[in-house]
Design a protein around this nucleic acid. Structure first.
Lengths: 261, 261
DNA sequence: AAAGGTTTTTCACAATGTGGAAAACACGAG
DNA sequence: CTCGTGTTTTCCACATTGTGAAAAACCTTT
């Protein structure tokens, strides 16, 4: 009779009610809910009451309709806030690695630094060695510049002032002018380039990924020896990164820039 | 001994678990959850399993951590959908963030509390951290006061009596007199100010947004460190918030009050 | 290999959730 | 106004269902 793997009955039912609530935008009545879920009216009512006590459901007395409550929103947005792009990004990184044969990275901005939080290594003998968790000054990083390029010029300026422009190599950007020139190019070609600005001999091509709120949350990149990532390959790699970033954005339910042209 | 009005026990507990899950961004373990909620580990586990079966919770086997699930997000966004101003507001919030360089918020009144339902974060290092869904006593909130200032004095008084005036900081409003004095100023200058009344060191400037029915449905605000939102900037920020709120009202087809009175 | 820390599963018991039925409403029509 | 039909809400006896202690299965560490 009993199915022991069914979980807790009342909780199951309450969750089903919640989902049913979410289905209709302009509220639904107890009795209809009971009908569609196959519950007794009194049971549905009791469960809804419990949901309401915790703010997950909302009852409009004047119209006697039930809605999804604010607490459901609060809890749900925790899902969106979560930095869970790491797992979904992996397949994209792997594919990038496979088609470019170079190391693929995922990074976020944390404070004034860009930190690499995930990486799929190239299989070449000579490969970039930048361990995950490693921090890089934003403007010496392809991923950093990809993210920052989506910001307003004032924000970029403020960040640059805050973080400074510590030169890591002879090719690092050293002045605000150079920064803005680079950002301009980044915006134009829709991918960012770190041309031995962080480590001599290392090039890196990057593009940003968008959150549901329309902000650049992270960036992905491909990095490898300058000797292998030649000028000739640059544009092709750039397009692939851009594509991967857009696909990942899509998969995360993100929204690229609203209407900019 | 038993409290029959407590609703369905297991459902209550499951919801509390969900809220606890939402509290931590990087996942939490069963045993910790059990500890913080005061449940037996086995009970917590059983409830979590049920939540997972419905997609409201998510379990990462490799790390044995629990997260909020996608279904919670889906259900929660139904709440946002019904409040059909949250999407249109985003561009306005972004612009506010860009011109003030502080965090911009959108909040509604729910019950006796003001809840922040959307937010566009400042890019400064030191920024306000009040995740969406967070609740604040109305009279300790700029957005709350902005909305309430549109009400009649009787309604305000009734709300204050119902909700009380829980002091959050030493600057919180503590008496009806202080409340009405603040409301008077709010009406006069056409924007509301929370001057470290919720969190010490945090200031917040807000203005209300009108629905087509001529009611203040939500409010938008800019919040940041008191050290940055100085008296000198106050009026300029106030004007910008007011402008943004009016523009948003317009876009929503809303109608500000007939000023004749 | 044993010792701590987990996460899962099991199980006997009764506390807990259940749904029918009845009460309290809310509206419209007569 | 009173009745009638649709609700929503409360009550309560009953056994189905959820419970938590404890044991089992898993891990990492030593």
């Amino acid at each position: 009779m009993k199915s022991p793997k069914d979980g807790v009955q009342s909780v199951s039912r309450a969750l089903i009610l919640l989902q049913e609530l979410a289905r209709s935008d302009d509220g639904v009545r107890v009795s209809d809910l009971a009908r569609t879920t196959g519950l007794a009216v009194s049971t549905a009512h009791r469960l809804l009451t419990t949901l309401e006590q915790h703010g997950f459901a909302q009852f409009e007395p004047e119209t006697t309709l039930w809605h999804v409550g604010r607490e459901a929103y609060a809890v749900g947005s925790a899902f969106g806030r979560r930095r869970n792009f790491v797992a979904p990004a992996l397949p994209f990184l792997k594919r990038l690695r496979d088609v470019t044969r170079e190391t693929a990275n995922l990074g976020i901005l944390d404070g004034n630094q860009l930190v690499t939080i995930s990486q799929v290594e190239s299989r070449e003998i000579m490969r970039a060695i930048s361990n995950p968790g490693g921090q890089v000054p934003v403007f010496c990083s392809g991923m950093g510049k990809a993210i920052v390029a989506t910001w307003t010029d004032e924000d970029i300026k403020a960040l640059a002032e805050r973080a400074g422009l510590p030169p890591m190599t002879s090719k690092s950007l050293r002045s605000m002018d150079e920064v803005f020139d680079d950002i301009r190019q980044t915006r134009e070609r829709r991918y960012a380039l770190d041309d031995e600005e962080h480590v001599t001999g290392l090039r890196c091509v990057a593009a940003e990924v968008w959150s549901p709120q329309g902000e650049a949350v992270c960036a992905i990149s491909v990095s490898g020896l300058a000797a292998r990532i030649t000028d000739a390959r640059l544009d092709s790699i750039g397009r692939q990164i851009r594509k991967a970033a857009d696909d990942l954005t899509q998969q995360l339910g993100g929204t690229p820039p609203s209407q900019s042209k």
